[in-house]
């Protein structure tokens, strides 16, 4: 038989859905800025595999000669991005939601099982929990990346006031140092978000409507064992590690 079960708290749903368009604006305005000095690419030795970005890309998405506009959007929406992210971190810490999100000592092993499962190599069902190991790693990493974007962003935005940050990067990242390293990391973190986004959307699509709907309504319809009607009881809103969940709950 079926039952409604609370999955995502209202606050987290707001943080999530505010972050989505704001991050899009940050990436779009970032591209307007990046156009003015588009130096990064993937190279093996002296051979260029891919250049960020081919001219056709800028033309297609109308990203050319809009540096001032890009900076204006970036320096307004950076506030919303940072404040929303900060509130999310505070909320997860205070509400106890972090217990579902932070990796623990079983996470790595479990994440590997998830990967094998998703690649159809391993047949056993995934652990029935709110977030599995792979999700814990992904959702925690993306927050750490957000902090990275914030810090490298500050190092680029105020390189003298935050000279200590830039100096920290003087150790070098792949041979790039100082101010350049901040810019380099800031760019690659954005590439990271795009990869995260692609995998996230694919996983959500795979997990299905019930799972996606939970990020909007907060509730999921779950299948519970046994059809004998039980006396009225309360369902834990946050979804305990022990509470039954649909198999899909593990995927996105």
């Amino acid at each position: 038989m079926k039952r409604l079960e609370k999955k995502h708290p209202l606050a987290i749903r707001w943080f999530h859905w505010i972050n989505f368009p704001v991050l899009m604006v940050m990436i779009w305005s970032g591209l307007l800025i990046y156009w003015a000095n588009d130096v990064y690419g993937v190279r093996i030795g002296s051979r260029s595999l891919f250049q960020f970005f081919p001219d056709a890309f800028y033309k297609k998405f109308n990203l050319e000669s809009r540096l001032a506009e890009g900076m204006a959007w970036h320096f307004l929406f950076m506030w919303i991005f940072a404040i929303n992210g900060l509130l999310y971190v505070i909320y997860t810490a205070v509400s106890g939601e972090w217990r579902h999100l932070l990796p623990n000592r079983n996470t790595l092993r479990e994440a590997w099982q998830v990967v094998l499962h998703d690649l159809r190599i391993r047949r056993q069902p995934l652990p029935r929990r709110k977030f599995n190991g792979a999700q814990q790693i992904a959702y925690t990493s993306v927050i750490v990346m957000g902090l990275g974007s914030l810090l490298t962003g500050l190092a680029i935005y105020k390189p003298i006031q935050f000279a200590w940050l830039t100096a920290f990067l003087n150790g070098g990242v792949l041979g790039v140092t100082g101010y350049n390293a901040a810019r380099f990391l800031h760019f690659w973190l954005t590439v990271g978000y795009c990869l995260f986004f692609l995998i996230h959307v694919a996983q959500v699509a795979r997990a299905g409507w019930n799972n996606f709907r939970a990020m909007i309504t907060g509730y999921e319809v779950v299948q519970v064992e046994g059809d004998a009607p039980q006396p009225t009881r309360t369902a834990k809103a946050s979804g305990d590690a022990v509470s039954p969940a649909t198999p899909e709950a593990g995927a996105a």
């Binding site: 079960e5 039980q230 009225t232």
Partner: peptide, 15 residues
């Protein structure tokens, strides 16, 4: 954060 959910509701009612 807890809410009351009627565990005895039928599948159709839950939907």
């Amino acid at each position: 954060t807890e809410i009351n959910i009627d565990a005895a509701a039928s599948d159709a009612e839950v939907e």
